[in-house]
Computed example of a mutant assay.
Amino acid sequence: MSTSTDDATAAFVVHRNLLFTVAYEMLGSAADAEDVLQETWIKWVGVDLDTVQDQRAYLVRITTRQALMRLRTLGRRKESYVGPWLPEPLLTAPDVAEDVELAENVSMAMLLVLETLAPTERAVFVLREVFDLGYDEIAEAVDKTPAAVRQITHRARAHVAARRPRGVVSPAETRDVIEAFQHAIETGDVQGLLDRLAPDVVFLGDGGGIKQAAPQPITGAGLVADLLAVSLPRIGREMTAEPAQINGYPALVLRLAGEIDTVIAVRVDDGLITGLYSVRNPDKLSRMEQETTLRR
């Protein structure tokens, strides 16, 4: 390996966790984020490092451009996806939860809000609001003028503000709900959990056409309560449940015969469950056996 390749490798390794986080925030898929990092590496080793003033900014620019291309491809793929699409859950390290802003932005609820943005809007929002990049840096990454980036940022902020969860979620509140879930599964007593449902709670189940899941979002406390009342006792007989840190927040992992079958993440606002996200698609559970490090 040449000295220049050694230097390129060293720089890439230093920033790899940041680059993965950028790509995952944009794509909601760890597998696609890893592909983007591979493409970023291939382009990076061909760069003359003597011409690069800020290696971090340059790498973020490459990653963003690759993620944008991948995001447009993903959009076409999701059009044929069977049932609701949910982000790929990540088993995250405890320090992600300690960074409140990062945890909020990689939460299932927030990633679903980001899904409603156009690709360039999503890239600009993530780079500005999550990673605090300057408008000039973002402009180079998305091939826009700084003035255009400011306009896109304003538009994306307004879009997200109208759809984002109501406020910063307390991990303690989420943990209480997860403990109630686990208690309901282990004892068959689901009433206490049902009492925590917000009137407008939404349940989303992602089986990807591979595992059985609700084919459409289920909205409203009554309908979601009916689903939980039927499914939780059955889960308790067939599966084990264990708490885990998923996308920066407490969540529940269900195992069948020792293998991960389902990941259940929740959104809690003002002490009530406003979102339930159940990922069963086995293609999306591959990152659940070891922690993923996310960085800003």
Results as ranks from 00 to 15, higher is better:
V142S: 01
R76W: 09
I273R: 02
V124R: 08
L91T: 01
A31S: 13
G167R: 06
R255F: 09
D261E: 15
L232M: 09
P94V: 08
I235K: 08
V263L: 13
R295S: 02
V160C: 11
I235R: 09
I235T: 09
Q290H: 13
I246G: 02
P87N: 08
L127C: 03
V169R: 05
D195Y: 11
A139S: 15
P119N: 07
T293R: 10
A221G: 12
E115F: 00
T274P: 09
G258K: 07
D283C: 01
R166N: 07
D32C: 00
H159T: 14
A158G: 11
P243F: 06
A158R: 11
G209P: 00
T73Q: 10
G236P: 06
I260E: 06
L204F: 11
T174C: 12
T73C: 04
T292D: 02
R56Q: 15
L74K: 12
E186D: 11
G236V: 05
L37Y: 00
K284A: 07
D35M: 06
M26D: 11
E115N: 00
T292R: 01
A161W: 04
Q151H: 07
A158T: 09
T3I: 14
A225Q: 00
A8C: 14
V52H: 13
R237F: 07
W85D: 03
V253W: 02
S4N: 10
G28F: 01
N281A: 12
T63P: 02
E259D: 12
P165N: 07
M110T: 11
V52R: 03
A229G: 01
S80C: 07
E242R: 15
V230P: 03
T145I: 09
E104H: 15
E129G: 08
P250M: 14
V60A: 01
H183D: 15
D270P: 08
V82L: 09
P282T: 05
G192N: 11
M108Y: 02
D99S: 08
P87L: 08
A123M: 11
P165A: 02
T293K: 13
D226C: 04
Q66A: 14
V149C: 10
A265I: 02
V253N: 09
V266E: 12
R255W: 14
A184I: 12
K211G: 04
W44D: 00
G248C: 06
Y81P: 00
R70A: 02
V268P: 07
R61I: 00
P84L: 10
V36D: 02
D283E: 10
F181S: 01
S286D: 15
P146V: 15
D48G: 03
R234K: 15
V96P: 09
G134S: 06
D136R: 12
V124I: 11
H159M: 04
G275S: 02
N17K: 03
T73F: 00
S231D: 11
V168F: 12
I178S: 10
L254M: 14
T63R: 09
G220S: 07
L228F: 13
L254V: 03
S231L: 09
W41K: 02
M288Y: 05
A109H: 04
S80N: 12
Q66V: 08
I185Q: 10
S286N: 03
H159K: 04
